[in-house]
Amino acid sequence: MTSIILAIVIGVAFGAVLDRIGASNPNMIGKMLNLTNLNLAKTILLAIGTGSVLMFAGQMLGLVDVGHMSVKAAYVGVFIGGLMLGAGWALAGYCPGTGVVAAASGRKDALFFIAGGLLGAAAYMVTYPMWKSSGLLDSIAGGKVTLGTVPGSKFEGITALSGDILGIVLGLGFIVLAFALPERLTPSKSELQPAE
């Protein structure tokens, strides 16, 4: 029961924040990916950095249970799948989570995204044996690994560096990157861009 209450509380918060930062707005996604407005990229970088610093600092202080970490396996299919997701994300303006939020916020195209998504997931379920036998799902570089070695974690590190310290350093790096990234990377067509 507790886990259901947590699912509701954290899920509601996540959905609301995705809406407020503009992640479920295909215009914001499009402007981020065509490099004309990187505010959302700055948000995401700051979020990854903040989450990383809090989590690893919390683990070092013993306040966060290292057992909650869940590291996914690395294999060639991760990159191929990433390419596919990226292409579809750019085309539709939605990823799985933001598509759900967008549909709930009344965007009709997001309903078509979800329908397509259910079919795409079903297509993968059917073609999974083919991928499995191709070897592209076989672990590379140790599979479920972190960049440093996190004390007390069941996941191995690809380096012997302290995983906690590295996590905090990389987290701070993401935060610095968030501040350093300009608002746009492509030259503005007119000097007078309308305000958002």
Binding site: G77, M84, L85, L91, G97, D109, F113, Y124
Partner: peptide, 19 residues
Amino acid sequence: AFVGGFIVLYGARLAGGCT
């Protein structure tokens, strides 16, 4: 949006996760 959704979820499952 439909085609995008198809590619996104097929890719996400192949990769083992999404954004």
